[in-house]
Design a protein around this nucleic acid. Structure first.
Lengths: 345, 345
DNA sequence: GTTAGCACTCTCTCCTCATGAGTGCTAACA
DNA sequence: TGTTAGCACTCATGAGGAGAGAGTGCTAAC
């Protein structure tokens, strides 16, 4: 699949023009707008070749050319130059992370908003996993007669609250004793590694409140199961309505129904190469609902450890160069801020 | 505005037929489908009268009639008979509230899902207010060197977490002492009534940790401000895409943009008559974005005290009778469940 | 290898025309 | 006086056709 220089230029011109205009691109347009120094007829010959190679296609005989999935793929891999972000965008992003922040969830949520605002596409952020997170701190406090609140803080900064039924008559002091014991045994243990033996060891210690402890451990165990799923934050879902390829309500419906089903979103965002930006174009996506969308995603980390995924979804005709730069910059800022919040403990 | 019996029957037939079909209704249809015992010509005369009275209108000369806002209003106020819900719907709703629940937020969120699923429209639920809620329990625990977590439980069952910067070197015991003092002074006080004097009184008590206390109180004060806004839960936003009046993406965009701006949603849901079901039809809504939608809303309560608003938004051509019954039933169940969760403390 | 020229294809828009649903009016009827 | 049949009229809708325009592929000349 060798492309000589001129073919590359033509293909690139077609793709970039189509990305901007959403209209099939003709040989004449290319010759006029992009100074290749050759006539439309020459361009036409090149286009015929490019079509034969599968990089572009024709909606119908008398229309211009439109990039195919394969064309976009080649563009992203070999033609595109990394886009220098406009100073305004850089500034918006930097500023968003200048504000001091303490809460991981809030930072992540804001990131979804930011991504969608800067790119004008739909942003998806899958929150930190709970099941592999480690205990950092746990506290049990009474709420009313026979209900207590478990507050759990994980190593990656998530805060979880769960109410639990406990035997009547437990005092604040009792619950604090339980909290202390839990903290003593569990800090540093991943939620999904909360083994039975660990639990039994602890039961010995707090014989008096066996029943309450059982209940609490049950709740914690439940939290550690992976099926619960990480939180998903969406941003700018309405942006997609401005795209001409979504002028048809049925298409919008397809995409939105998928976005509403969080397990599908998680699946879509699941396998991201560590630390790398990943691009999936059209049919490359496994989910049929996004077969005419493109998705750019990346992982984000706390202190170098991957904790979640974020991405931008838009029409196949996406400003790949720009979005890639935006996602890259956002991830870097997000990583910094999260790591700073958590500290290196 | 007296309508004789036959006019009422005709108007009702027109409205109900239009609600089902979304097509302008002709005299012939009425005569055929609804056994009024008169000819289309007679119906036509009645229709002309109804049009003159402003209850129905004609999209164009040779089309059937379509209800006007005023027509719907009259229908809702005087024509409609309360709909007995289908056993299936009743069952779905009851079952949804049979599961035991402990967390107020979760119940409310599920309610939004339920409402949209049963009605096939969009559900809006505005969560309990924070600013007028009373302290029920507060706990401060250390997270890392100089950060502590405030966990606040309010009388209406909301759980709030806030991280706060505290001086280094505070032990768990120190923070517990502060928690105890806070609980001692604040339980039962509404968040927005947290007066300066109260705070000062407390400061005396905990002279040792003045600075930490200040920080904590600052955060709490912030929580008590009304501008923060109650949480908003949406359900079934994609349902609206199935409605023929939203086949135009621009209309969808208008509505969705509004739903994305939570302050607008709160405004829309704001003034609900206490305990009553309220219906706003088309232009009766203040927000122009929903000028061709109808909104049915109601307040929900804990132990008889109103804490929030919920509602269903759909096209003007809405199944008012059904939705009213659904909302009514859901509110009753929701009230029960919330009150039960909170207890009568 | 490049280009000008040209015939060809196909979409898109605009127009016209027929169709049919639905009306309002009038006159006859009970 | 209310009801109805009949009829002329209106207007949206859809089908069919002509013309314009964009863009192509091919051929022949450069």
């Amino acid at each position: 699949m060798q492309l000589d220089e001129r073919k590359r230029l033509v293909l690139r011109a077609i793709i970039e023009d189509y990305i901007d205009s959403a209209e099939p691109v003709g040989s004449r347009t290319i010759a006029r707008k992009y100074q290749l120094g050759v006539s439309p007829a020459t361009i036409r010959n090149e286009m015929a070749d490019l079509e034969e190679m599968g990089f572009i296609e024709q909606p119908h005989t008398s229309a211009g050319r439109v990039p195919s999935d394969r064309g976009y793929r080649f563009y992203v891999d070999s033609l595109m130059e990394p886009k220098r972000l406009a100073p305004r965008d850089t500034e918006v992003i930097c500023r968003a992370y200048q504000a001091e922040a303490r809460e991981v969830q809030a930072v992540i949520e804001r990131t979804a908003q930011l991504l969608s605002r800067v790119t004008d596409y739909v942003a998806l952020v899958v929150g930190p996993r709970l099941d592999t997170a480690v205990f950092r701190r746990i506290e049990v406090v009474p709420v009313k007669e026979s209900t207590a609140l478990i507050t759990l803080i994980t190593g990656n900064g998530l805060i979880q609250n769960k109410l639990v039924e406990v035997p009547e008559g437990l005092t604040t002091a009792d619950l604090r004793a339980i909290s202390d014991a839990l903290n003593h045994h569990m800090v540093g243990v991943p939620l999904n590694k909360m083994s039975r033996t660990l639990i039994r060891a602890m039961s010995h210690e707090i014989v008096r409140h066996q029943l309450a402890l059982d209940r609490i451990l049950e709740v914690l165990e439940h939290l550690g199961r992976p099926d619960d799923g990480e939180r998903v934050f969406l941003g700018g879902t309405t942006n997609i309505l401005a795209q001409p390829e979504f002028r048809d309500v049925e298409k919008v419906r397809g995409l939105f129904s998928m976005l509403e089903r969080l397990e599908l979103v998680r699946e879509l965002m699941a396998d991201s190469g560590q630390g790398m930006l990943s691009v999936s174009i059209g049919e490359e996506n496994k989910l049929p609902e996004v077969a005419d969308c493109s998705l750019i995603k990346a992982t984000y980390s706390i202190n170098g450890q991957v904790v979640g995924t974020l991405g931008v979804i838009g029409p196949r005709r996406m400003h790949y160069d720009r979005v890639l730069s935006v996602v890259d910059l956002v991830v870097r800022h997000l990583n910094d801020q999260l790591s700073q919040i958590i500290g290196d403990s």
